[in-house]
């Protein structure tokens, strides 16, 4: 989002301060005697976002429960997949559910129904519990994992 850093309350006293040497505890310049933590920005080169809908210009309608608008604003490039493609921004605005990400953050859009599977896409499909359980089982073992990839990803 173009910020040099972000001040955060809390964190001092947790293990984060041992594993993140880039987190800096400093005195709050506006509140004498208080210590706050400064954290560096996360600036992804590329973000993938799955949208409910996208229009032809690249405006996105996404799930408001998630932090996708923040992710879009922080990333250099954004590739969006979507369940549905519509013609105009007006059609996106007319939808009851979801929040808008303006096209100026979006590099490209791919119409790809079901791209969030086996996780859920609100209003389109639920979590595929069976497949997630199989994934968890397969992830414990290299051979099983390769066979899982063959069954569900690479074909």
């Amino acid at each position: 989002m173009g910020q040099p850093f972000m001040p955060v309350r809390g964190i001092i006293g947790t293990g984060y301060m041992h594993i993140r040497s880039d987190f800096k505890a400093v005195e709050n310049p506006f509140q004498e005697g208080e210590k706050v933590v400064l954290v560096p920005p996360i600036t992804p080169d590329l973000a993938f976002i799955h949208a409910f809908k996208a229009d032809r210009k690249g405006n996105l309608l996404v799930d408001g429960f998630e932090n996708d608008p923040l992710l879009a604003r922080a990333s250099e490039k954004v590739i969006a997949t979507c369940e549905e493609l519509v013609d105009s921004r007006e059609e996106l605005l007319a939808c009851g559910e979801g929040v808008l990400i303006p096209s100026l953050y979006v590099t490209g859009v791919v119409l790809l129904e079901g791209a969030a599977r086996p996780t859920a896409c609100r209003g389109y499909y639920d979590l595929d519990e069976n497949l997630v359980s199989r994934y968890i089982e397969a992830a414990k073992d290299g051979e099983k994992f390769n066979s899982f990839l063959r069954d569900f990803i690479t074909g």
Binding site: R9, G10, I12, G13, T14, G15, E34, K35
Partner: peptide
Amino acid sequence: DFVTGAGQSPPEVYR
């Protein structure tokens, strides 16, 4: 094994 949430914290930290 790892402090994710700290039960206690130094007095100079907002809590």
